[in-house]
C-alpha cells in the first residue's frame, strides 16, 4: 500500500516535472535554432532535428499529463492516447516519431545524406499502411530497433566527434527508452526524474564532459 502510494507520488511528480522541463528545454533549443537561423540565414539541420525530437517529446508529455492526472478529460483523448505499445495509438505514434528522429539525427550528424529521411519514410509508410489496412505488427519491433540503434550510434558519434550535445542526448535516450523498454513501475518513475535532471543540465549548458568540443 505504502509502495503503491510512493510510486503514485513519484509518477505525479514525474508528470508534473515533465510538463515544465521538457517544453522549456524545447523552447531553449528552439530559441538557439532560430537565433542561428537569423545569423546564418538558414536552419541548422542538426539543431532542427534535435528541436523536432524535443517538440514531439513535449507533445507526448503534455498529453501524458492530461491523461494520467485524476481530472475530468475527454474520453476520446484517453482512448486515442492509449499509452501502450501493443497497437498504434497516439502514445506509440509519438514514441515512434522520436525514435525515427533519433535515427535521422545520427544520419545528419554523420552526413549520411542518402539516409537523412530513411527512418521517417519507413515510419510514415508504417503509419499509412496502418491507416489503410490496420496492420501494425511492425511497430513494436521498429521502435525497439530504432531506439536501440539511436542510442548506440549517438554514443559512437558523441565519442567520435567529442560532442557534448550528442552525449547528453545519448544519455537522455538511454534513460527514456530504457524506462519504456523495462516497464517496471518504480524504475520508470525514477527514470523520468533522472532524465529531467539531465535535460536541465543539458539545456542550461552545464553539461560539458568534453572540454574541447569539435564541431563538424
Amino acid at each position: 500500500m505504502v509502495d503503491n502510494a510512493f510510486t503514485t507520488t513519484l509518477a505525479h511528480l514525474g508528470y508534473s516535472m515533465n510538463l515544465f522541463i521538457i517544453p522549456i528545454t524545447t523552447l531553449i533549443v528552439g530559441i538557439k535554432l532560430f537565433r542561428e537561423k537569423k545569423a546564418t540565414g538558414k536552419f541548422n539541420i542538426v539543431r532542427s532535428t534535435i528541436f523536432s525530437i524535443f517538440f514531439t517529446f513535449s507533445i507526448l508529455v503534455i498529453l501524458e499529463f492530461f491523461v494520467n492526472v485524476p481530472v475530468e478529460k475527454p474520453a476520446l483523448l484517453v482512448e486515442w492516447f492509449g499509452g501502450l505499445f501493443e497497437s498504434l495509438n497516439l502514445y506509440s505514434f509519438l514514441i515512434g516519431i522520436i525514435a525515427s528522429l533519433g535515427i535521422t539525427l545520427i544520419a545528419v550528424a554523420n552526413r549520411w545524406e542518402s539516409f537523412y529521411y530513411t527512418s521517417l519514410f519507413f515510419y510514415g509508410g508504417m503509419v499509412i499502411l496502418f491507416l489503410f489496412t490496420g496492420f501494425d505488427d511492425l511497430l513494436m519491433i521498429y521502435v525497439y530497433i530504432t531506439g536501440g540503434a539511436s542510442i548506440i550510434f549517438l554514443y559512437l558519434t558523441a565519442f567520435r566527434v567529442k560532442d557534448n550535445g550528442a552525449l547528453a542526448l545519448a544519455i537522455f535516450f538511454t534513460i527514456a527508452f530504457g524506462s519504456v523498454a523495462i516497464d517496471i513501475d518504480l524504475v520508470t518513475r525514477i527514470s523520468v526524474l533522472v532524465y529531467d535532471v539531465i535535460l536541465i543540465i543539458y539545456s542550461t549548458g552545464f553539461f560539458k564532459p568534453f572540454k574541447v568540443e569539435v564541431v563538424s
Binding site: E113, S114, T133, F135
Partner: peptide, 20 residues
Amino acid sequence: TKLYTLPFIATFYLILGQLI
C-alpha cells in the same frame, strides 16, 4: 540524394500492403 531510399521503402510497403 536525400530521397534515394524512398523507392525501396515505398516498394516494401506496397508489396506488404498487397500481401494482406
